[in-house]
Design a protein around this nucleic acid. Structure first.
Length: 423
RNA sequence: GGAGAGAUGCCUGAGUGGCCGAAAGGAUCAGUUUGCUAAACUGACGUACUGGCAACGGUACCGAGGGUUCGAAUCCCUCUCUCUCCGCCA
């Protein structure tokens, strides 16, 4: 959520930057500014009236203590009108605040200056490409066929147990998953990320804090009886660890990582592009979450991007990095890099990581602030990135590394898998 | 699922109608003293909104929301959450 004070003081800039996200609603911005003015006016009126009433109440108290009952009664007579006034002003204020809030929540985050303008994925900027695109023989198989051939992932069994989008990993497939999780967590640990095991269900307040609620309600699985949501990403619980928290400035940056299963309803899209592991209702992911000083957050965004690329290099996967254009970026993000990995048999790029700086947009919702030795608390910046999402990594490993003998396992994973070939 | 207890500032914890934005202790920070460490002493030490160039003010906040009252942390109602014991269970 953007801060009203910022909108008020930087109207033009806000309009221009929102336009990069194709959000062009000057009338909404002006309405917000007007509402804010009204709000402050009403608040002032209420405060002065309350001050008056407090003073009288105090006077009555003093008179009562001195035993001057008659005088106290006469002062009492003056308070009657004030009470009603305060009540009226109060409800007006609440009304204005709610209206203001409901409009503020419609505004997406401001994109960073470096974010390219654009409407969709075609206009994302390719920042770099790395690695050799493997040349596969003509009889190369997509990963869903490989999964069946080597009996390592069973989509049919998943259908039986839960439904489409809930695969069952078996044997070396399950082991490879576990190897990837451990490898990712160990690497993050080496980079001084603290490992967290959060709940994988969250309450409403947490969903609101990171921006999933109220608008993206349909994307999460909801446990009605307890009013809890299955997390779509570890970002939700791990970032919410710091909801309503004021951290010490010298503690920044705070680096946490977590492995969790992630659940996404993503209802309604089926077909070749979402076949196999390409899009699932449940998948595993290791997530990095950082809380940063505003002066440092963009440096940290680059570091996170570099870190994720390092993982892909070690796994030997050809990848490219995209800087998302305004139109393709999420509602809450200021700048996002997507890492896409080449899937050789499908002959397409698949997103395996998304690294974002939210600046203070989430922090404002979360009330996540930091405070130095001097001065007032200020909103921190939050960042997160997948490092990495497993299914598409798996898909790419299977497709790119297929040989006549079987699927070869990257060097770095062998200590974790205990085998070097899936056959 | 059954029974009970509770929710106060960074923490512990006092406070049952006005003198309470809130005692006391601890923690933290600054200063004084001491040969260092430690200790002792002194002072500072919530958040939000708002007025003001500032100094400095105003208002609100003692789990949340309502109510009683001139006046509520304190009384009443509703809700949420936490803890303890029993039951069930990995």
């Amino acid at each position: 959520m953007l801060q009203v004070s910022y909108i008020r003081e930087n109207r033009e800039e806000v309009l221009n930057r929102l336009a990069v996200k194709n959000f062009i609603r000057p009338e909404l911005i002006d309405q917000i500014i007007t509402l804010d003015e009204e709000r402050r006016f009403v608040q002032n009126q209420m405060d002065t009236t309350a001050a008056e009433s407090n003073a009288l109440a105090k006077q009555i108290g003093d008179l009562m203590r001195q035993g001057k009952k008659a005088e106290a009664e006469s002062v009492k007579a003056n308070t009657a009108g004030l009470k009603d006034q305060i009540r009226d002003l109060g409800s007006k204020l609440t009304e204005l605040e709610e209206k203001l809030q409901s409009q503020l929540i419609i505004l997406p985050n401001l994109p960073h200056q470096s974010v390219p303008k654009g409407f969709g994925p075609e206009e994302n900027e390719v920042v770099l490409e790395y690695g050799q695109i493997p040349q596969l023989p003509d009889n190369a198989l997509p990963h869903w066929d490989l999964a069946a051939k080597y009996d390592i992932i069973d989509f049919e069994l998943g259908n039986k147990i839960a439904g489409a989008g809930f695969p069952v990993y078996k044997g070396k497939g399950a082991k490879l998953q576990r190897a990837l999780i451990n490898y990712f967590l160990d690497k993050a640990g080496e980079e001084a990320y603290r490992e967290i095991q959060p709940p994988i269900v969250v309450n409403e307040a947490s969903g609101f804090g990171t921006g999933q609620l109220p608008d993206k309600e349909g994307q999460m699985y909801h446990i009605g009886i307890d009013n809890l949501y299955l997390i779509p990403t570890a970002e939700v619980p791990v970032t919410n660890l710091y909801r309503d928290v004021i951290v010490k400035e010298e503690e920044l940056p705070i680096r946490n990582c977590a492995y969790t299963p992630c659940f996404r309803r993503e209802a309604g899209s089926y077909g070749a592009h979402v076949r196999g592991l390409n899009r699932l209702h449940q998948f595993d992911k290791v997530e990095l979450v950082q809380i940063a000083h505003p002066d440092e957050s963009y440096k940290i965004l680059e570091e996170m991007s570099t870190y994720v690329q390092g993982l892909l290099k070690e796994l030997g996967l050809p990848y490219r990095v995209l800087s998302l254009c305004g139109g393709d970026m999420s509602f809450t993000s200021s700048k996002t890099y997507d890492m896409e990995v080449w899937c050789a048999a499908q002959a397409r790029w698949l997103e395996v990581s998304s690294v974002s700086n939210f600046e203070n947009y989430q922090a404002n919702r979360l009330k996540l602030r930091f405070k130095g030795a001097e001065g007032k608390p200020q909103l921190a910046h939050t960042l997160n990135g997948s490092a990495l999402a497993l299914p598409r990594i798996l898909a790419s490993l299977l497709e790119n590394n297929q040989t006549e003998k079987g699927i070869s396992i990257p060097e770095v994973l062998i200590p974790y898998t205990g085998f070097n070939l899936i056959d």
